[in-house]
């Protein structure tokens, strides 16, 4: 059993959990977080794909892709959260 097998299965499991959460979760905040879990799962698979048996160094291209993905994901999360805040404010005004 090598780390790539263990963490590859972990990544797929995390992706699946995130997918269920994104579709089934009720609160908006939880749905955004579920999408973030999906992105971590995808990151796991790319990092696993870059892994080589220890004497060899890993493939740097997928690493760069995952770093790019992390930054894009934080941007998307920030916009989603701003939309949630705005929605909540509008709903609070409607109730008042």
């Amino acid at each position: 059993m090598t780390p790539d097998l263990i963490y590859g299965v972990t990544g797929i499991a995390v992706f699946g959990i995130g997918l269920v959460g994104a579709l089934c979760a009720q609160e908006r905040l939880r749905r955004v977080l579920a999408l973030k879990l999906c992105s971590v799962g995808a990151g796991f698979l790319l990092v696993v794909g870059a892994w080589r048996e220890p004497p060899d160094t890993p493939d740097p291209v997928p690493h760069a892709l995952v770093i790019t993905g992390i930054v894009v994901m934080v941007s998307a999360t920030a916009v989603a959260l701003a939309l949630i805040r705005r929605l909540q404010t509008l709903e609070a005004e409607d109730d008042a």
Binding site: D4, Y7, G43, W51, H63, V66, I67, V71, V74
Partner: peptide, 16 residues
């Protein structure tokens, strides 16, 4: 880090 990707780990810990 276990998958020898310290750059990605740093980015995930700090940003993600």
């Amino acid at each position: 880090v276990r998958l020898s990707a310290p750059d990605v780990a740093l980015a995930e810990a700090a940003i993600g």
